[in-house]
Design a binder for these strands. Structure first.
Lengths: 258, 258
DNA sequence: ATGATGGTTGCTCTGACGGCAACTGATGCG
DNA sequence: CGCATCAGTTGCCGTCAGAGCAACCATCAT
């Protein structure tokens, strides 16, 4: 509401971009000026000029041979840059939803190098504010979050990334000691939609995680719960399903909904 | 160049979005009106109104508690439909394959104006996520990626694009100082299938790149490795062949997936 | 209270854009 | 070859939307 500026121009430009996004899409053929004009219901002269401006700023690109337009690189550059920031901002309610259901600290993790980095966390009332903002833990396939974060890698990469030595060195009681075991586990994770670990990384500690994806479908983060087995042990699978559900909703929210 | 419409408003809006993207950063807090106004050098009243409009269209979102702004859902929705997005989605496994072989950060670049824009990167374990999403560097023929990206241009275009002055100004130790030298180098690149540079752009840094083509056969991106000479120097040509191989596979995949 | 800082709103005058129509240029057809 | 059609660009003018300034709120610290 309230005061607006450039409302008309902005709306026109966005109508154009939307038309290009939906009608043409990345795989579709570029759209011509007249076609766009029809679809947004405006003067083609306006569309011609507007597309010129948009092209000059890199928001759309002109295909040389067909002289049609499609979405430009700049949109990608803008969005890619702040993705994590937005992730953190949006994740909170979903993390909290899990917290209220499970009553355990719930965190959001990303992969940095070969460490799992926590970028957001929500704690239940009455819980001591634990690590919170940024803990770095060894993922090396001994944590559920780490496994989830690599669960869309191909087998070759996994094999070269996780050597046996590395696997054995991860965690106190690694249940997974060979790349093949890891690959089998990743398959299970993909099938179930969430991962669980039982005292592998640390004695008495269990955890579950589920993947969050970006607009490319790539796994960019994991929603994770880590808690003492005495508290969470019985409910671990139930918690896993909650976490998976939250991660899915978060994924959807990230790209589409308003 | 050509007629423009809404040029002023569009540019202002994009300046704002750029500021939000860059200044807010990965971990960034939302930015307030005054801060944005300073950064883009405009009247805060304009920024206030412009942000209102942008928020109404979903290009930015207002953070309730801090009353600051950050990029909004709509940008991500649009970004998902760009060609770059598709490229990144498909390229990731191939980049990772190179990383596991060479153990160096591998990136995917496209040409934007006369800059090289990194649109995706994969890092080996134990590398700190450096630039990550997108950096902009001066290619002007002093980087391997830049040379690869222009290696299918015709001689006239090259000559008019890269003046001697421009060539001399690029990099610390430009080995290529005239258009003719550049053309000869491009010929070598085409013959070998990949490009290498040795401390030209920056002292102590070497790199190699290979072209990715679309279904028209046009070069649309480059797979690139840039690393300290002390680490990669000996293996530079081997790395070049890996990169070329990955780029070819990616090209094939890109064409098949239509 | 006072002042500082961040954000919104009223107001006027200017210049940028909407709409139309003429123009260019490619393509097709008898 | 001439004519018709369609796609895209450009010139023109009156009108309306926005740049800029300053006044006005809201919040917080001293």
């Amino acid at each position: 509401m309230a005061a607006r500026v450039n409302a008309a121009g902005l709306r026109r430009d966005l109508e154009i971009l939307d038309v290009l996004a939906h009608e043409a899409g990345p795989r579709g053929e570029p759209l011509g000026v007249t076609r766009v004009a029809e679809l947004v219901g405006r003067e083609k002269s306006q569309i011609s000029r507007a597309l010129s401006s948009l092209a000059e700023e890199g928001l759309v690109e002109r295909d040389d041979r067909s002289s049609g337009y499609r979405l430009g690189w700049r949109l990608y550059a803008l969005a890619a840059r702040t993705f994590e920031s937005r992730l953190v901002a949006i994740a909170t309610p979903y993390l909290r939803a899990v917290v209220t259901r499970v009553q355990e600290t719930t965190v959001l993790c990303v992969l940095r190098g070969d460490d799992v980095l926590t970028i957001a966390s929500e704690t239940p009332p009455h819980a001591f504010r634990g690590v919170g903002w940024e803990g770095v833990s060894v993922p090396a396939a001994a944590t559920s979050a780490g496994r989830v974060l690599v669960s869309d890698w191909d087998a070759d990469t996994i094999r070269s990334f996780f050597t046996e030595r590395k696997l054995a060195a991860a965690g106190e009681h690694p249940a997974i000691r060979t790349p093949d075991q890891l690959l089998a586990e990743l398959e299970r994770i993909r099938a179930r939609g969430y991962a669980t670990v039982d005292e592998e990384f640390e004695h008495g500690v269990v955890g579950c995680s589920a993947p969050v994806r970006d607009f490319n479908g790539r796994i960019v983060a994991a929603v994770n719960i880590t808690a003492p087995k005495t508290r969470l042990g019985e409910r671990l699978d139930a918690a896993g399903r909650f976490v998976a559900n939250a991660a899915q909703q978060l994924t959807r929210r990230l790209v589409e909904s308003r």
